[in-house]
């Protein structure tokens, strides 16, 4: 194994990260986006693991490994939270896409404003 340049793993992790990032940009469905985030996360964790195994010496560097553990836990939490939130959004709006329409334009801000009013009026 030692003859393989460790940088291959690092490069692979970069590719995984970018794949995740690309899907995050182009996918509209929330579920796909959450998965894209997880792919990005995996890229980062792969990177840290590869980094840790690269240090000279008998055992791999424990610090990046601990970081990965932390990162995984955070990512699990994030996924759980995001799924619950997405579910709630779907319940209330019957949509499963993150609405992109109201990005920059003021007119759509108006639109979302009206929605908000309804919700404020009824719920708050």
């Amino acid at each position: 194994m030692t003859e393989i340049d460790h940088r291959v793993y690092l490069a692979a992790s970069a590719i995984v990260f970018v794949i995740g990032f690309y899907s995050l940009l182009v996918q509209a469905h929330v579920l796909r986006r959450i998965m894209a985030l997880n792919v990005m996360g995996s890229g980062v964790f792969l990177f840290l693991i590869a980094l840790g195994s690269q240090t000279p010496g008998p055992v791999p560097d424990p610090v990046p490994r601990a970081m990965v553990l932390t990162g995984i836990v955070v990512s699990v939490c994030a996924t759980g939270l995001a799924l619950a939130l997405a579910d709630r959004v779907q319940d209330t709006t019957d949509r499963c896409e993150i609405s992109e329409a109201n990005r920059h334009t003021a007119s759509s801000d108006r639109k979302s404003g009206i929605e908000a009013e309804h919700s404020e009026g009824s719920a708050s």
Binding site: R7, A14, V18, Y22, T55, D61
Partner: peptide
């Protein structure tokens, strides 16, 4: 999105390749 990603990948590869082969780490 594709061009963003390609740029990002290029930058990352550049960075990764320039990393020291025997990193200092905290081992």
């Amino acid at each position: 999105a594709g061009s963003f990603s390609v740029c990002l990948l290029a930058a990352l590869s550049w960075a990764v390749w320039s990393l020291p082969t025997a990193p200092k780490g905290l081992t």
